[in-house]
């Protein structure tokens, strides 16, 4: 790591001033010019918020899967809701999908992706369940072959 650090100081665009920012980087935003601080601080806080939300939702999922305090048939619905909520948290806090003007295309693409995923998954499940219910039971099939 020390070697790599020495190296980086040879890189032209990594000025000593920028290196100074790095030293103070962390949760306490000390020794940085005021213009730099809010950006980094807001960034760290955003990732921390995402991590916190994600940990809570993950633990809730694992709790919901093993509990008997929730009505049994409701558990899959609860798990699905928790998973979708956690995906939302990841999209907003980690992947930075927002409603900003630069993000319009990303959101449209995401909507189309979700649409295709839903078609593939639920379409397959419905078609296969339907075919399955129209299958002859195996013993009857064997009887017919005699």
């Amino acid at each position: 790591m020390a070697n790599a650090n020495d190296r980086s100081s040879n890189i032209p665009d990594n000025t000593p001033e920028q290196h100074g920012h790095a030293e103070g980087q962390g949760h306490d935003a000390q020794g940085k010019p005021p213009g730099e601080t809010p950006d980094l601080r807001a960034g760290v806080l955003k990732y921390l918020a995402g991590l916190g939300g994600s940990i809570i939702l993950t633990l809730a999922s694992f709790w919901a899967a093993g509990t008997d305090q929730v009505w049994g048939p409701g558990i899959p619905v609860l798990l699905a809701a928790l998973a979708i909520a956690q995906m939302g948290v990841h999209l907003v806090f980690f992947l930075h999908i927002s409603s900003g003007p630069e993000n319009t295309n990303n959101i449209l693409a995401l909507a189309f992706g979700v649409f295709v995923v839903a078609l593939v998954v639920f379409g397959s499940m419905i078609i296969m369940a339907n075919l399955n219910s129209h299958m002859l039971p195996m013993d009857k099939l064997l009887q017919m072959q005699r």
Binding site: S8, Q25, Y47
Partner: peptide, 19 residues
């Protein structure tokens, strides 16, 4: 690791080789 990857990209935005 997803969280530290976020910290990783913040370090890149700050051009901090060390972090």
């Amino acid at each position: 690791s997803s969280f530290t990857c976020g910290m990783f990209s913040l370090a890149i935005d700050q051009r901090s080789a060390r972090y």
